[in-house]
Write a protein that binds this DNA or RNA. Structure first.
Lengths: 150, 150
DNA sequence: TATTGTTATACTCTATAACTATA
DNA sequence: TATAGTTATAGAGTATAACAATA
């Protein structure tokens, strides 16, 4: 019962696909260079991401589940972050088998810097669009973002 | 001299960022499962991609440059594709040091199948949007796609 | 000599298995 | 016994270095 034909949805999907590809290829070079310079792996950046946004300390198992990676992979990844003071790791007093990890101020700042780089890449591409195109895109995306709770 | 304020551009960039993240996380699980089943690495899929779209045979060096990976990595990656009949590799008659590689029919078909999966993930998310949202998004993206030559 | 691609080797990141310590 | 995390080991994929063939 869609009020939009399947062909239209398909065409839109292809457009979104092309748009994403363009954004991904255009904006990620600087990000990867920055990650290399900071000696952070992709997993470490992702870990910093969820820990930066987490309201409360997380166990390693919770991080492992959130990222869909094995516990050993997370253990080693977080270990590197702890050694550089980007993450704090301490025993859970209520279950001493478990370790609670939190992003430190420095860790949050490091993630913010990388996130800003990624955003800058997208902004550069958007700035190349005509003002009218930007406005139409903003108007079209805003309600979608709001409705999806992003 | 933009007719759109910087704050507006920033807000739009953030929306696009959120939208992309949602699309990437939503649609890629099936794709990775399919890749695993086909025993194709990311590099092999990317190689199939550019070879499928290439008008003419490419040298290994050209593939290496296009993907930003080392020649040995491409050599091994393509070797696997050749062994499975997805890519044809032959000496360049005009420079016998060079090998020319082309996607075979089977190789193109394999790439098309994976590409369709990725598109399906995006389409699923788009189908969740209200008809009006879809129409606004389509109207906003179409001119952008056309102007960027995508 | 310089260049194209391959083979050798070392490194990073991951997963499974074995282990330690708590529960 | 079961569970959280760590350490041991093996596998995939990449890069640099050494090599072979051709220019």
């Amino acid at each position: 019962m869609p009020a939009v034909s399947e062909e239209t949805t398909d065409a839109l999907a292809r457009d979104v696909f092309a748009f994403i590809n363009r954004l991904l290829t255009s904006g990620h070079r600087e990000l990867f260079i920055a990650m290399e310079k900071a000696e952070l792996s992709i997993t470490q950046v992702k870990s910093l991401h969820i820990l930066s946004e987490a309201e409360e300390p997380m166990s390693l198992g919770a991080v492992s589940d959130a990222l869909g990676l094995s516990l050993p992979a997370i253990s080693r990844s977080v270990d590197g972050l702890v050694q550089r003071g980007l993450v704090k790791r301490e025993e859970d007093p209520r279950d001493r088998r478990s370790k609670l990890v939190t992003a430190t101020g420095r860790g949050r700042a490091a993630y913010e810097r990388l996130s800003a780089l990624r955003l800058a890449g997208i902004r550069t591409m958007i700035a190349e669009l005509e003002p009218g195109e930007q406005q139409a895109l903003a108007a079209a995306l805003a309600p979608v973002i709001r409705r999806l709770g992003l």
